[in-house]
Every structure is written in structure tokens, then in C-alpha cells.
Amino acid sequence: MPKITITEPFNFASGGDVTHYKKGPDQDVPQAVVEHALKRGYTPKPKPKAEAPATAAEADK
């Protein structure tokens, strides 16, 4: 399961069950909860990964 930081507590309903998620860092949650939290702003959007610098061999090309 992915880990996310929850910045604002929220409830997530699925299949008739409602789960409460508390504010806090590094919480294991299902992918559907990640998508819900991102869409509603309950977790920060992931930062884009910086590209690795070119190696000397690639720079010589």
C-alpha cells in the first residue's frame, strides 16, 4: 500500500463501510484513498522527481 501524509482528517466511504483517516505522516492507505485524498486536498501533491544529471559519457555524445 502507498504511504501518504494526511494534512487534514477525512472520512472515506467504500462498499458501505466508512473509514476515518487521522492527520499524520506516513500512513499506509489503499490506492483509492490516495486518489481521494489528492483530489480533495487532504494530502500534498507529490513533487516532480528531478532528472538525474547527465554522466560524463552522455555529455560527450
Rank of each mutant, 00 (worst) to 15 (best):
M1H: 12
P2G: 13
K3M: 09
K3V: 13
K3S: 15
I4Q: 06
I4C: 07
T5Y: 02
I6A: 10
E8N: 12
N11G: 09
F12Q: 03
F12S: 06
S14V: 11
G15E: 09
G15L: 12
D17K: 15
D17T: 15
V18N: 10
T19G: 06
T19V: 15
T19S: 14
H20L: 06
H20G: 04
Y21K: 09
P25F: 05
V29W: 12
P30H: 08
P30C: 12
Q31N: 12
Q31D: 14
A32N: 14
V34T: 10
V34K: 06
L38I: 03
K39V: 01
K39S: 14
R40W: 01
R40A: 13
R40I: 08
G41F: 03
G41H: 02
G41A: 09
P44L: 01
K45V: 02
K45F: 05
P46Y: 05
K47R: 09
K47C: 00
P48G: 01
A50P: 00
E51A: 11
A52W: 04
A52M: 04
A52I: 04
A54I: 03
T55H: 08
A56K: 09
A56W: 11
A57D: 13
E58P: 00
E58G: 01
A59C: 02
A59D: 01
K61P: 01
K61V: 07
